[in-house]
Design a protein around this nucleic acid. Sequence first.
DNA 1: AAATATTGTTAGACTAGTCTAACTTATTAT
DNA 2: ATAATAAGTTAGACTAGTCTAACAATATTT
Lengths: 218, 218
Amino acid sequence: MLTQTEENYLKALFTLTETEEGKTEAGTNELAAVLNVKPATANDMLKKLKEKKLISYEKYGKISLMAAGRKLAVEIVRKHRLWETFLYEKLEFTWDEVHEVAEQLEHIHSPKLIEKLEKFLDYPQLDPHGDVIPNAKGEMKMPVRKTLAQLPVGKTCKLVAVKDNSASFLQYVVQVGLGLSSKIKVVTRQSFDGSLEIEVNGRRSSVSQKFAENLYVV
Amino acid sequence: MLTQTEENYLKALFTLTETEEGKTEAGTNELAAVLNVKPATANDMLKKLKEKKLISYEKYGKISLMAAGRKLAVEIVRKHRLWETFLYEKLEFTWDEVHEVAEQLEHIHSPKLIEKLEKFLDYPQLDPHGDVIPNAKGEMKMPVRKTLAQLPVGKTCKLVAVKDNSASFLQYVVQVGLGLSSKIKVVTRQSFDGSLEIEVNGRRSSVSQKFAENLYVV
DNA sequence: AAATATTGTTAGACTAGTCTAACTTATTAT
DNA sequence: ATAATAAGTTAGACTAGTCTAACAATATTT
């Protein structure tokens, strides 16, 4: 069985190599940065994970997950997102509070617990941030997602997810009056810089293109 | 903040010094035994916990919890019992399955999580084994508890807790047709050895005095 | 009270995970 | 194509938690 630390490395590699489109490899420094450790530390762990045949990696080369490693990583992501859903839906946690606690809960080992939790939550498809929850087989059906930046002027849409899950971004989102399932209307778009004027619950705000690109809508 | 290991030592000391009536101290070997480590290991940790002023302990002397250590221990017991209640009541875990998973969940650090979980469970007083759940202030109101062995012949009672929480005992309990809240009628008692004939859901069984002493009833 | 048994302690070693500091390889820019 | 920069690696050290083996103190038995 893996240690929590090993699990964290696999999860980080998963998000690093599968979140950004087309990317399938990561580097030592990059990995160390997201895990808040020094490159030397990450390097040691990479050797260990290679030894266990969970990643493929050669000295001075790029890192990628092997099938067994990816499977374990997906399992951890699944647990993380199910716990986030539990905290949000059953325990009244807010959007930006769930992540930190789920970081701990994702390391609880008990297949039965996750099965039962998923059932209790009635087999949710998306977590509170709108990210896909892998099913028990490790499959993630990726919905095609559109960002607010792509929506034509005049149209109304519903917020289903955010791309950036940092607490600072989430707090900004809340500040603009947005939450999951909020209705958003695009009032105007500046062709100069792509910034938008939007309307949420009758309240108008002006947001940058970058902001709009971080909001997934349907 | 304490490590999981430190938390486990405090919890073990708590159960060792407060579960048995009148006992307020423990020894190194005894502690090591319940934690499944060698006495040498426990000895190292005792020095560390003493350093942190969580226990009182002198070389070759007995061990007892100091106020700060006891408070932390109670907090862990509280978390353990709330999680057991959650697993049993919400996730359909059985009586004998909850403990193992709760051993992991009790180490999640988040005051808000425990507050909300307690509220979600509607402030339960007893866990699935009938043990008292300490409240947020760390108070445990100990109910006076009667065992089945003390019940007069002819009386009917309800099972609220068991003294021995070992999986083997719990499985035996289930075998006799008993569960939490089961109604039990004492049909006969042998004055020779204190053994009882009991009736549960119309089904009669004969049980030893020792068995009956491990069942708390109201 | 001496012998024996139990209980507790110490010293030294090991693993996992981390660090710093020095070094090597690869990439980029002039 | 060489110098500068970035990325990656190694060696050695540290902490936490564990072990074994040897030793010391305390308790028990005869």
